[in-house]
Design a protein around this nucleic acid. Structure first.
Lengths: 345, 345
DNA sequence: CTTTCTGCTGGAACCGGTTCCAGTATCGTC
DNA sequence: GACGATACTGGAACCGGTTCCAGCAGAAAG
């Protein structure tokens, strides 16, 4: 284990000088700098980050808390976060936050309390008031992705508006019996995603003068979830809707698979639209509103770096503005949507 | 920032005593222990892990290197690793290792060299000889998942045997024209997964006396990949096989979707089998060989903990045995496979 | 020729814990 | 009553860096 003292000895300088030479802070003559660097290379010296962060207080590490890893949106965000942080010399500690449980508490009380990071990025976690307080008390910059957190700069899409857009696309094609299949607001998995997409749907329907009775079917937020509900919603030809707005592409694809199994032509007999921009969308020719998780990840990292560069906490934040960065979604029309072909009563 | 010195002062003891009381190592009377704990709680003391690991050398952190995050197998493993580590009081630093590139080198030279972890788990990474050396030189325990690494305890399934089993299932049903759709061994993504599953297939075919000409179709290792190849392999009725062994469930599902679009009945006209135990398998009624990524993750963690508990590195390892833990896969028969119903020439 | 500034270097303190070692009190044993 | 073992406590060294401060050149300014 070579320490900086060894490097200093080999280079014939003091520890202080060696430290300055290697970190690049403070005065060091070019000649000695080269000597120190050479010595360091010779013995394969790598600075101990523990010792450094003990005195500087910065760890070059970012904590990420996230409720799921294996779902598309989350794994995409995670990958982009990791890339962006790596490029900036930060490594990433991952905290997979389960629903309310002893493990969840331990993340807050034990792991996060250790403060082994310079900042935290919270991805789509539904935080309780107490949890938000705890995060703030850590005294570290905090950035959110996927839904607003009190007093935290958050990167997100506008779920209400996006759901509204999706619904309006179907209504604009002339559909009357439009149905929404999505996550149940009761067991809100992360943010207000379920309820917000639902409310965007409802408001678009109301604005178009449509009834909102019996047109929401909750399902598990996955492809099998959409499939299952799809089978039951589409099973009865008499009550079958002509268009379905699914809260996610995976749900939408589940619905399409169900429709195909039931012999229902998409889009001739049924239009389906989703939200996400999932890589499978193309293969199922799914019309969707693309959000861009990787872009959200990159933005979150640069927002965090900005906060980290801010000289002191006491420094007034720039006018509370820019606190919610809303990213646009874009409509990609494929052939899962068209006007209703069946005559309606 | 409350330090242990503050706790000691408040409890009226020395730093040393406070440390012993809180860590539970060494003699402390019950009375003072309680006093110290109370004092610590009062001022909300949390030990600085940096300071602790500076002197003890252990970080209570485990590094995980992984080539993908968003693919099913990897995200499942990751989730299980995180859970298991958390339960043991370890947090997890994630290094998403891209294919050979400057970023990849930086992970080894910069991030891993910092040694901010007690051990490393490598998940399905194809490591070069030089990289394996570098990992060993870190002087930290190393566990592999998904493929053998030189001198490293690895948890894996037997890809050759599993592929053989899948193929034999199809052959056993009486299929003659059996085809394998899988990853291209040329751009091996992680371990020898592609080539091993291919060779298991070939050997089963040869053992059954079947020709192995023109019966392997490489594709991207994903559902769209399987779909695309499925369309082309199944497109021509004259050359269409009666059974397909797909290297993964996602590929298999892609093939099934392609078959359905082409109006080919599964399993009446085409049997399909996959490998994985993907959550979508049920909904597509896919026969598959289940591997259990979560179990692999848990085993890797306990193997790592065992290594960490080993007193010294100099200590002889237990006879090199148990160095490869091979996990069984189990056949789950659903209705994507059956005997060939079409008369054969 | 002094004074001041700038560039550079080394000694020492410090970050916040852990652990070694010495010292004391209590207890059981011969 | 002497002795050793056992339970407990505090002082001090230490882990491996960073940073403050003082000191000392040599150059520029007065």
């Amino acid at each position: 284990m070579s320490a900086i003292a060894d490097v200093a000895r080999l280079a014939g300088v003091a520890k202080a000088t060696a430290s300055r030479a290697l970190s690049g802070r403070g005065y060091v003559s070019e000649a000695t700098r080269l000597r120190v660097v050479a010595a360091a290379r010779e013995i394969g010296y790598v600075a101990s980050p523990n010792a450094a962060s003990l005195v500087t207080g910065r760890t070059k590490n970012v904590g990420v808390i996230i409720p799921f890893i294996s779902r598309w949106f989350f794994s995409e965000v995670l990958e982009s976060l990791e890339q962006a942080l790596l490029a900036e010399g930060y490594d990433m500690t991952l905290y997979n936050l389960p629903a309310a449980s002893a493990e969840r508490d331990s993340v807050f009380e034990y792991f996060l309390a250790r403060k082994r990071f310079d900042g935290v990025i919270s991805v789509g976690v539904a935080l309780s008031e107490a949890e938000v307080d705890r995060l703030h008390r850590l005294g570290r910059p905090l950035i959110g992705i996927g839904g607003p957190i009190r007093d935290v700069h958050t990167i997100a899409i506008d779920d209400v508006a996006t759901a509204r857009l999706a619904t309006e696309h179907l209504l604009g094609l002339g559909h009357v019996d439009v149905v929404h299949v999505g996550g149940d607001p009761i067991d809100e998995m992360d943010f207000r995603v379920h309820s917000q997409r639902l409310s965007g749907f409802y408001s678009a329907m109301r604005d178009a003068g449509r009834s909102t009775d019996r047109c929401f079917y909750p399902c598990e937020f996955s492809m099998p979830g959409g499939y299952e509900v799809g089978l039951s919603v589409l099973g009865d030809p008499r009550t079958r809707p002509t268009a379905i707005f699914a809260a996610s592409d995976e749900i939408a694809i589940g619905v399409i698979v169900a429709a195909r199994e039931l012999g229902i032509q998409v889009p001739a007999e049924l239009s389906v639209i989703g939200i996400d921009g999932h890589p499978y969308a193309d293969m199922f020719r799914l019309t969707t509103l693309e959000q861009h998780p990787r872009r959200q990840g990159h933005l979150a990292v640069s927002a965090l770096l900005t906060e980290l560069a801010r000289p002191t906490d006491a420094d007034a934040r720039p006018e509370e503005d820019g606190y919610l960065t809303v990213l646009p979604t874009n409509l990609v029309i494929r052939s899962s949507t068209s006007g209703p072909h069946r005559p309606r009563r």
